[in-house]
Computed example of a mutant assay.
Amino acid sequence: CGFAQSQEAYDVAVNGLFSTLDRIDDHLGGSRYLCGDRLTLADICLFTTLIRFDLVYNVLFKCTKKKLLEFTNLHAYMRDIYQIPKVAATCNFPAIMDGYYQILFPLNPGSIRPVMPVGCEHEFLSRPHNRESMSSAGKSVQHVL
């Protein structure tokens, strides 16, 4: 979306992005992780995109149709992974924002760093996600990487 060179290209990209996010959100309504009860590399790859979405992609790359916070299942899924022991320690929000808004000069010539949006704070991401109940009854969740 953010690299589109025409309105038509942007429209195609943004509609494709949000169509995909809608499909993933629907899928996560019935599955704790992308591939069932087990955390996989696919989940980690998606998490690294989701954790940046409202901070950067929504504004800088013009992905403004919806905030991740507005996707009930996707946001809970992101909180679920964020709350796995030691994951939160790898999420340096000021560094993420600096990397996109200040270091990548051509994308943001004024180096203006917007205020961190609601929902991206540690306290907010640490709220209950209630996704444990989505795991198969009686099975403990395995984290496989």
Rank of each mutant, 00 (worst) to 15 (best):
G16T: 14
P114R: 06
S135M: 01
L60V: 02
S135D: 06
I103M: 12
G36F: 06
D22V: 13
V12W: 05
V87E: 01
D43P: 03
L60N: 04
R38C: 10
M134N: 08
S31I: 01
G2H: 05
P114G: 03
L39Y: 07
M97S: 02
D11L: 13
F105Y: 13
P106K: 06
R23Q: 15
V87S: 01
K67C: 02
I96V: 10
E123W: 11
Q5L: 15
G2E: 11
C120F: 01
T40Q: 05
L104A: 11
A95P: 05
N92A: 07
V56W: 00
H75N: 14
F61L: 09
L34C: 10
P109W: 07
F124L: 11
D98C: 04
Q5P: 09
F3R: 15
D22L: 13
Y33N: 08
C91Q: 08
G29M: 03
A76M: 07
G2Q: 13
P128L: 00
G36H: 09
E132R: 13
L55W: 03
A4L: 05
F47D: 01
E132P: 08
T49K: 14
E121A: 13
P128C: 01
V87G: 02
N92L: 03
N73S: 11
D98N: 12
F18Q: 13
C35S: 10
L55M: 09
Y77S: 04
A4H: 06
L60S: 04
A13F: 10
Y100I: 00
R23P: 06
R127T: 07
R131F: 04
E121Y: 14
L39T: 00
I24C: 08
F53D: 02
D11C: 08
S135K: 12
H122E: 11
T48W: 06
C45M: 08
A89T: 11
L69G: 09
V59K: 14
L50F: 02
L34Y: 08
A137Q: 14
H122C: 10
D43T: 06
R127V: 00
L17H: 11
M78L: 15
E70R: 09
V144R: 12
N58H: 15
P109F: 12
G2V: 10
L145R: 07
C120S: 08
I44S: 06
S133I: 00
C45G: 11
Q83K: 02
R79M: 11
V144E: 14
T72I: 02
L46D: 10
F3P: 08
P128R: 07
L21V: 13
H122F: 06
G36V: 07
K65H: 13
Q102F: 04
V87W: 00
L50Y: 00
V144Q: 12
G16V: 03
T64I: 03
L28V: 07
C63T: 02
D25Q: 12
A76K: 14
T72E: 14
P117Q: 08
I51M: 04
L74F: 09
F3G: 15
D22Q: 15
G29C: 02
E121N: 14
K139T: 11
I84R: 02
D54P: 04
